[in-house]
Nucleic acid binder design. Sequence first.
DNA 1: AAGCGAACCTGGCTGC
DNA 2: TGCAGCCAGGTTCGCT
Length: 293
Amino acid sequence: MPELPEVETVRCGLAPVMEGAIFEEVELRRPDLRIPFPPRFAKRLQGKKVVGLGRRAKYLLADLEDSNVLIMHLGMSGSFRIETSSTEVSPGSLRSERGERRDHDHVVFQMSSGAEVVYNDPRRFGLMDLIPRNDLETSKYFLNMGVEPLGNAFDDTALAALLAGRTAPLKAVLMDQRIVAGLGNIYVCEALWRAGLSPERPAGSLVTKTGKPKAGARRLAHAIRDVLTAAIAAGGSSLRDHRRVDGEFGYFQHEFAVYNRENGPCLLPGCRGIIGRTIQSGRSTFHCTVCQH
DNA sequence: AAGCGAACCTGGCTGC
DNA sequence: TGCAGCCAGGTTCGCT
């Protein structure tokens, strides 16, 4: 499911049932996801109150009252769902009854808010970890993490500094979490289309010799912000069977200009191009060869 | 150092 | 219907 907008959508969905609530029971239904759960994971969570639920890039961060932080990453196929009391569940509802387990339900949080928060992840590329808040910034997860694209520090000047001197294609550089943190395959493709930039173009070519942003870098910085903001407003993208935590669909997938639109017409007014699909660093890239340079 | 491909894992879809 | 092959929203490792 999860690039930055989807993770932010999950955060917004979980916050009402997790913030201020206590982990009454934590059930691990297997010993690991992408990495093993830390020692005594369930025990260390039980009885602890969630002070706040935040996000950094594609990571969810539950701040605990004991000054530890629960780190959660959804990988490729991770999702959370909330199950509440069965009284309001009607037959045929998409919501399932509390206590019902499905394939690949790996973690269950019983919260004092009355909600059951279930983590499901078929491919198990996600992870959960628990570390002291003071160690967060220097942890392996965040030590080399790039700039938050919706943060105040991200603008065309900052982007230019990050791209300067790089010969790798724009697509690969924007996918690199050490540079800009939170973008993935969908939103990189969409941002490059919005900025009218070729995914193959060397990243450093958007920067002048003196390190200033060229017009393309300015368009790109705005495109990244705009596409992420619009996607969050739409509740993220629901591909395949993925849903939001409340069982509803996000609907940004209907706004895709290029992603999954191979052979479709370019949506830029006046452009007669056709969307093509190429492979870069082993991932599909969707773009218009006519209006993206 | 930077950049690229492979690996991790399961499921869904396409085509024969 | 069955099965092989390909593809998938991410990250990390290892090789050049």
